[in-house]
Design a protein around this nucleic acid. Sequence first.
DNA 1: GCTTGCTGTTCGCGATTTTCGAACAAAGAG
DNA 2: CTCTTTGTTCGAAAATCGCGAACAGCAAGC
Lengths: 303, 303
Amino acid sequence: MLNFKHLHYFASVARAGGVIRAAERLHLTPQTLSGQIAQFEERLGVALFDRVGRRLELTEAGRLALSYAEEIFQTGSELEDLLKNGADQRFITFRVGIADVVPKFIAHRLLAPVLNLAEPVRLVCEEDRLDRLLAELALHRLDMVLADRPMPPGTDIKGYSHPLGETGVAFMAAPALAARLTGSFPDCLDGAPLLLPGRDSALHGTLPRWLERQGKRAHIVGEFDDSALMKVFGEAGAGAFPTPAASVADVTAHYQVVSLGETDEIRERFFLISAERRLAHPAARAVSEHARSGLFAQTEKSN
Amino acid sequence: MLNFKHLHYFASVARAGGVIRAAERLHLTPQTLSGQIAQFEERLGVALFDRVGRRLELTEAGRLALSYAEEIFQTGSELEDLLKNGADQRFITFRVGIADVVPKFIAHRLLAPVLNLAEPVRLVCEEDRLDRLLAELALHRLDMVLADRPMPPGTDIKGYSHPLGETGVAFMAAPALAARLTGSFPDCLDGAPLLLPGRDSALHGTLPRWLERQGKRAHIVGEFDDSALMKVFGEAGAGAFPTPAASVADVTAHYQVVSLGETDEIRERFFLISAERRLAHPAARAVSEHARSGLFAQTEKSN
DNA sequence: GCTTGCTGTTCGCGATTTTCGAACAAAGAG
DNA sequence: CTCTTTGTTCGAAAATCGCGAACAGCAAGC
């Protein structure tokens, strides 16, 4: 483990250009700094200074260390400043990672309770691929992640999945395309152009298998990492596309598309993934509780 | 000054979710961590944990501190890794900031000796406005800065200027434009369309004043922060433009332009700016020594 | 030459900080 | 209620840190 006190002394000496000037600034004595730096170098196994004449000159390793040290102490003092001055913030921030494949309307519905809490919350959303979000979660740069699958077991990243609910899948299409598709659902999907969620999505594998079981030919014309982009293509008539049954009302309200029909044989599930087993963040608890209290059931009924 | 040992213990407890589990991982006892964290909180004046039941939960300030701590210790261990494993790098890196206004050919000529040193050097160049480069120099993210002026005295950033040499100024123009300009130099500049280095450049002020002293009308059609962009416009016939006399050969070799003439009454000077008074970096010393040994005088002769 | 003043360094002791053993209080599980 | 597990308080031991004294080497001035 790196000794940050040593690093601090080293950086001070490097900046000041000598142990004596550094000692004055730090209100210490030269021999202290000299000794601590020698100790630091020995512990690292690398010389940080070249002793040339009666002068200290940075080695290449020293330059590297100095640039890192500057960065470290800068973020450190930034933190100190925030804690000492801005600690009595009225806002608590809630950083959520949202997997691309989670439809925006679902994400909004899941997160809506956050903004209605008694204590004001600043919601910070970030969308990306699930694996990258989980990496950020592990570094505590995110408070939670929304995904369409539980924590993948293979990774060595630790995280805990909390199911939020599930819903059937509806198929939507632009009106012009819908008119061309013959037969009732799900027969109308046979051979129809289809847009598929990307490889990262849970539906990516299950949906084609379901079509096959139904004896329908899959004609996949596109795959999309981002569900909103998929909807835009769908609206333009590129193909029919799946969407959570719970968000059909939202989708028809925002896009010029109609529902072809719904099935409960494919289930789309949503999960909250957190770094700790217990949900520590009040906003995360609100999300979990609201979702469990029949959020999807209600909305399916109301549609 | 932030206590990084305290911060480390705090982060460990927050990650582990309790003092006991954290104590096991750190090979310490719970009471040590408990005491150190209490001390840390008191020193900061902020509660990092909420004691709810027999459980520790992060406060909002704690979450903030944790995310900063993660970043700090990650860069710290990155540094440690680099120093311990990659310390015997065969390359030493040399990070140079180049003010936009410094012509590329001049920068190249000044930096060329760096790549011919006995010890191999990895040259990292960054171009930006001088003030931003000086800020980076102060943070030791750059080893030196090349500029067309010495260290500006007004700023509180500290840095030391080392003159590298000076040269007269030549005026260049596209052949078609040059043909239209009547009279010999400098008369031909009277009323001619002129491209000017940007506000950041030393020439920006001196060149119009020189024209005025010559009794020539200045007809400035454009200002450019980046000298290469100015040359491209000049090549297209937008106007005549100044360039260091020492780089006329380079410019005519790379752009379809001709020299209108040169003057020594405007001097363009170039400086090396470093964070320390003495040039510590071997590559920086090489730059300074090569430049001082008549780099510009020779090239002016050879042109 | 020699001296003076400056650099960084080594040594050992005292002061401070850190850590732990012991004991305690309180919350949850059975 | 009892037992386990949690975090905490207290004092004394242990490690670390920082200083005074003395030393070694370089550079400039007499």
